[in-house]
């Protein structure tokens, strides 16, 4: 049976891709903790040696448009390509899929009553490509195969936090029952607090973010007490991306050990954070 080694949750701001493309990682703007937080994640990945990453993220209008907007979509493609998203940042390298895990996840999740959209062709936007570049940087091909799981945060109503928790838990069960000796890491991308649109643009909530990160370790159900509008009010219209962190955490079957966390305001308009959680 497959093993879940843990989860990494991180922000996915497009400006990170801009900094990588221009090799500006050591500029003062990103200090003290943004890029410098990742070596700890790299060391941990070297130690736990995952073969596959299940990447939970939200598309921002590259693969999906409002003509067809799935609440939950799972990739089942041999390869996933990044592409121009309209602001001229060079496309990041493609990622290999894992068709066996994709279809195993699809079958297991639908059996657990999640009505998924399945994608045999799927572009991955910055929310997938940037975290993968941060976790496995450099020109060498990414060493892990991938399965994208996309959650709608574009068009409301969004799935509730409780529903996302259940999805994550079902992903975790599916992986645990996958008849394969692969080692699987869960990656959740997005957040934390930020708001891009409206008169309240620039809204951030450090106090809530830090509490959320703390609760995610030992009491991940805590955030399910909030509705989506509550979370928009508390974390901003895009702060709801914390759903990806929640889903990723819920996929870890038992307790977790916090290997690392950091928190940095601002990256562009966003409170950026990183957590590395090891399954125990």
């Amino acid at each position: 049976m497959a093993t879940i080694v843990g989860a990494i949750t991180t922000s996915h701001v497009p400006a990170i891709g801009g900094a990588i493309a221009k090799n500006k990682q050591q500029d003062p703007y990103w200090k003290p903790s943004f890029f410098d937080g990742f070596p700890v994640a790299h060391q941990w990945l070297d130690k736990v040696r995952p073969d596959v990453a299940v990447v939970i993220y939200n598309d921002h209008g590259l693969n999906f448009f409002l003509d067809k907007m799935p609440t939950f979509a799972v990739g089942a493609a041999p390869e996933y390509c990044n592409a121009d998203e309209g602001w001229g940042i060079p496309a990041l390298p493609p990622h290999r899929g894992d068709l066996d895990l994709s279809w195993h996840l699809i079958e297991s999740l639908i059996a657990e009553e999640f009505d998924l959209t399945t994608c045999q062709e799927m572009l991955i936007d910055h929310a997938f490509a940037i975290p993968m570049e941060l976790l496995w940087p450099g020109p060498a091909p990414c060493p892990v195969r991938t399965v994208p799981v996309c959650i709608n945060t574009v068009q409301f109503p969004l799935p509730t936090p409780a529903r996302c928790f259940k999805l994550g838990a079902a992903i975790g069960r599916a992986i645990e029952f996958w008849d394969n000796d692969a080692r699987v890491v869960i990656v959740g991308t997005g957040g934390l607090s930020h708001q891009l649109d409206g008169q309240r643009a620039g809204f951030l909530n450090k106090e809530f973010d830090l509490l959320f990160m703390d609760k995610l370790i030992d009491d991940p159900l805590w955030v399910t007490r909030y509705s989506i509008p509550d979370l928009v009010e508390l974390t901003g219209t895009q702060g709801v991306e914390l759903l990806m962190w929640l889903t990723a955490r819920a996929a870890l079957p038992g307790g977790v050990n916090k290997v690392h966390s950091n928190y940095h305001i601002p990256i562009s308009n966003t409170a950026a954070a990183l957590m590395v959680l090891e399954s125990v």
Partner: peptide, 12 residues
């Protein structure tokens, strides 16, 4: 609709 100051949810 929930009123959140300075914010419009992109709903249906």
């Amino acid at each position: 609709k929930r009123e959140i100051p300075g914010t419009v949810l992109f709903d249906g």
